[in-house]
Amino acid sequence: MSKPSLQLNEKQVAEWIEFRRDLHRYPELSFQESETAAKVAERLSEMGIRYETGVGGHGIVADIPGTEPGPTIALRADMDALPIQEESGLPFASARPGVMHACGHDAHTTILLAAAQLLTQQSFPGTVRLLFQSAEEINAGAKAMIEEGALSGVSEIYGLHNLPTLSAGKIAVCSGAMMGSVDRIEITLEGRGGHGAIPDQSIDPIVCASAVVMALQTAVSREISPFQPAVITIGSLQAGDANNVIPHRAVMTGTIRTFRPDVQRRMPDIIQRIVSRVADGYRCSADIQYIHQVPVLENHDECATHVEAAAKQVVGSDGLQQAEPTMAGEDFSVYLKQVPGCFFWIGSGPKENADQAFGLHHPRFDLNEECIPVGASMLAEIAMQRLFAITTPE
């Protein structure tokens, strides 16, 4: 395997691992990443990189200018943590109860900073733009940054996400659809409360809610082609407080995932029809809120090819894999609707039996820190290759 042309030395790797562990110990939820942003800003200042803070929440936009005019290539990392109680037992585990970097955004932030360090040591045409983003976990940060001009002048954008079920030292990428769309539904069913022993004098919203949950499954099994993946999951159902009382209302929330834009567009009407008609059959009224969040994440074919070329340089052909599609969502998809780009997986699991590792969003999630220098080399390599290729095409 050939050595990457852009590579952190051992001292730099150790320093960035220590930085990531500090971020891990002090996680912050979406749109609350003020301390994280301050630490990022401090490192950017030390590297002499100019930046703007407070973009789309606590986001940071920083530009590394080249030695001559050229295009702008954007690299993005997310910064927020999750409302999860950490159970990893790590010596640098979260010091904040109920908040954890269970998705590895602490590593993503570190990787982008480390890539910036590599890039400041190079000469290249054009500009590398660094996007440190808030609130990916609630699918709001990318939209907020775009609204405040983060993509202004950008030719292409690239981003990565660690994957603990993929061994560290491996890269997975694919063309086209890679991750599902994400929408949210909020359903309130109202009946008439009463005594649990006298159901005929009430209208039971719990029974209605049970029927709605089951009926919603037919939206996928009977209305969407089996060759067009879709998922409807009701994740919460709240109703009543006492065992012998029929409550007045039931409230449920759920997530809708699809893998094609046309299927995503069809879902609101399907959900509205099923819920309202089932509710009517059970004598309940239904209020349905369908909240669009992010589209299908679709990599641009040419950009995916560029990522593959960089991966072969950094990890070799043996380290490059075809990414398997997943219904998990990512608001990087919002950037890809604006400019060409590619999102890819970087292995963050153990070298052996990575498929048995605790996955993303698990309270015992543990990231293999060998992914940090690999990720830094990947982002820096992609930026350099694209800047020179666009500036001096064959």
Rank of each mutant, 00 (worst) to 15 (best):
A74N: 04
G149N: 13
I84F: 08
G176N: 07
T165W: 09
H108R: 02
L119T: 14
S123D: 07
H161Q: 06
S134Q: 00
A107H: 01
Q122I: 03
E137G: 03
S175A: 15
G159R: 01
A116W: 05
C174D: 07
L130V: 10
M179N: 15
Q117P: 09
V154C: 02
A81V: 11
G180S: 13
T110Q: 04
A172F: 04
L151Y: 13
A116M: 08
G98F: 14
T109L: 05
V173F: 13
E148F: 09
G104F: 06
A144R: 09
I84E: 08
S175E: 14
P71I: 05
D78N: 08
L160G: 00
D78V: 01
G176L: 08
S88F: 11
S175R: 13
L118I: 08
D183V: 10
S155K: 04
Q85S: 14
A102G: 13
G126H: 07
T120E: 11
L82G: 02
I111E: 09
R129Y: 00
M79G: 10
G153A: 10
N162Q: 03
P71D: 04
G98E: 12
R76I: 10
F92E: 05
Q85Y: 05
Q133V: 03
P91N: 02
M100F: 15
I84P: 10
P91A: 02
N139R: 09
L119N: 13
S123H: 06
T67G: 04
G149M: 09
K170N: 15
S134I: 03
G126V: 11
S94L: 06
E156M: 08
T165E: 12
